[in-house]
Design a protein around this nucleic acid. Structure first.
Lengths: 202, 202, 202, 202
DNA sequence: GACTAATCGAGACGGTACGTCTTGTCTTAGT
DNA sequence: ACTAAGACAAGACGTACCGTCTCGATTAGTC
């Protein structure tokens, strides 16, 4: 799970200020609307008031830096009440929506995440650190639901996660740039739980 | 919906051979595993046996060219039996899966689509030409289902499309690189139609 | 002595207007201060309202065209009184000075002549058509002077021409851009004739 | 008198090796018969094993580089005996002839000097650094001659310089490509000093 | 307090792509 | 066969960026 290059301990220690200054600078530039294509290492170093070598001493290349940038906007998982599976799923999905709405992560997500997919290695790193946690939280909730009988037990749990998370992920990352509306999390969870076929009772 | 630069009609007409030669060359390079980062205009022109100016005469930059490359792998919509909404939805989703599995479009999707998201303009063009058709076909099927009573009428149709298409889109474009397994389309459609909550009959 | 490409006589005859129009356009552009570096065939054709092929049909390349441009500003030799060698030399030199002062040929000389030297072939053509005539006129005058005893007979005539023409040529083409002053021709001729060593009469 | 772009003093200092490598490469290419038209910055950098930026960091464009190339073949002035004005003039002129005969400067002179005339600014720089020194040395000798009575005092010194230097300059730079013959310097100086009119002693 | 060693900002290095321009040829439709 | 218009392959232009390197100057910990 290593992205950064490590120091050996002798000589002048690396400035911790530089670390965060660089990541913060990238975030600031992205928020200011700078395109990924315009976001050169040269410009990052210049904007951060830092030498290029200082950047390359910490990250092997731009993509490695971007992984840490994405991590920097990663929000902690929301607390789960644990009462009902439905409410916990809504809470997880609502956290995703809030994250995508936040100015910072919105800018980052829109621009950077798609980019990371070019590199299998970086995509794996991003996935392992950011995505996996969320998916596993959802796995846990769903498995609990299967045990308690709140969720059908004849479906692959992996499929269940996709059914719940897929609609919001697709909207946030693939569809339009309009912000996602209030109540979307509830509507998705309820529709997936209940099904979209009318209930015939006769 | 315009990506390409148009000629005026006077003078030597543009070579239609060059058009397709360029797009085909990009596709070939992508299939050969050339990264988007390695895919320079210089290399495209060289590989296509074409002058750089001939490329720039048709597309303003690499991204504009990529939009047409993506369009080139766009498959026609599958024929819909029209018998049951469930079967039509499966057919549409299965076409998506087959498209993502195809060697060509797989290479393109993996590498290019994420990239187009950097540019709002190009993403819009891609969306308007490739995505919209598919979504509208699904809209039509779902509206028919609402009319025939096969689908609940209390849900936003836009949400319904996301519920059906989202899981597969997220897998194809965001998740892992492993090919999607047989029967996935059916499983997704059935799960969304039936819901993932057990049916209590007492 | 051929610079231009010749037509065969069949089909639509070449527009004589185009010929001179092109040369005139180059002269106009040069007078307007357009540098040789800025003077592309593309621009010449555009400015002359002529297709590029029309230019290339007449001249094999830009340098060949420039030879004709230089020829176009070539003034006829001045009439020589023939009375004294001194006066004829002054007349020839004064014609050179006037030529260099003329707006047209000044612009051309300054920009083009140096350029022609790059190509031995073109320089030879220019030399054969423009320079040789002048040198031969001067040869003739000087040989007459040797015969009539107005000029020493112990000097190479080639050297004599260089002594007379060299100072003005060097000024016009190599030295400063300031126009050459009145009476320069006389001063050069008289100084070369008389020598610059004081006459000791004792 | 500046041609080169200067560094600010901070950061890695410019490689002195690159400086000379580039100029030497241009000289080598010219000696190998490469035309000025074929002498692209791209080729210069490639042949010198240097990045294009390294060239452009030092010179704003090809012409500015050529000024330094011309300067590189500039020979120091010959030592002047100071005994007689005639001998010093011959020495100066002979140095010019030797310079034009030398393989290096010959190639450079033939190709480059004419080219520099296109740009007033570069021509001025060349003139100020290379030509002026020679002219001023000749001025000094001639003024001394006027004082000592070896040279007429009724002629403009500027004109005197042109009379002496003009014939050789015109031959070296404007006339034929054949090398200048031995003894030419003496012949020119003596002819100008003595005049070309026969001395009538009666 | 001197020594050592890795850091810092700055910026040069070789390479390469960018998007534009020019060269000389070729291909249209029209005269 | 000519014309104007303009596309074509080739490749140079000057700029920007990549990732590495080299400079003098800091900034610790070790002697």
């Amino acid at each position: 799970m290593r992205t950064r290059t490590m120091a050996t301990g002798r000589g002048r220690p690396r400035s911790a200020a530089a670390d965060s200054s660089i990541v913060e600078t990238v975030l600031r530039l992205l928020e200011e609307g700078v395109t990924l294509g315009e976001l050169s290492m040269e410009r990052i170093a210049r904007s951060a008031g830092v030498g290029k070598a200082t950047v390359y001493r910490r990250w092997a290349n731009k993509d490695a830096l971007l992984v840490d940038v994405v991590r920097a906007v990663d929000e902690p998982l929301p607390p789960l009440a644990g009462a009902s599976v439905r409410d916990d799923l809504v809470a997880l999905l609502e956290a995703m929506r809030q994250g995508a709405l936040a100015k910072r992560s919105s800018a980052v997500l829109r621009n950077v995440i798609g980019h990371l997919q070019h590199s299998p290695e970086l995509w794996r790193q991003y996935h392992d650190t950011v995505v996996r946690t969320r998916r596993e939280a959802m796995y846990a909730v769903l498995r609990r639901g299967v045990r308690t009988g709140e969720i059908r037990d004849d479906l692959d749990v992996r499929l269940l996660v996709d059914l719940i998370a897929g609609p919001m992920l697709a909207r946030a990352l693939l569809y339009e740039r309009a912000p996602m509306e209030d109540g979307l999390a509830e509507r998705i969870v309820d529709a997936v739980l209940d099904g979209v076929r009318p209930v015939h009772q006769d």
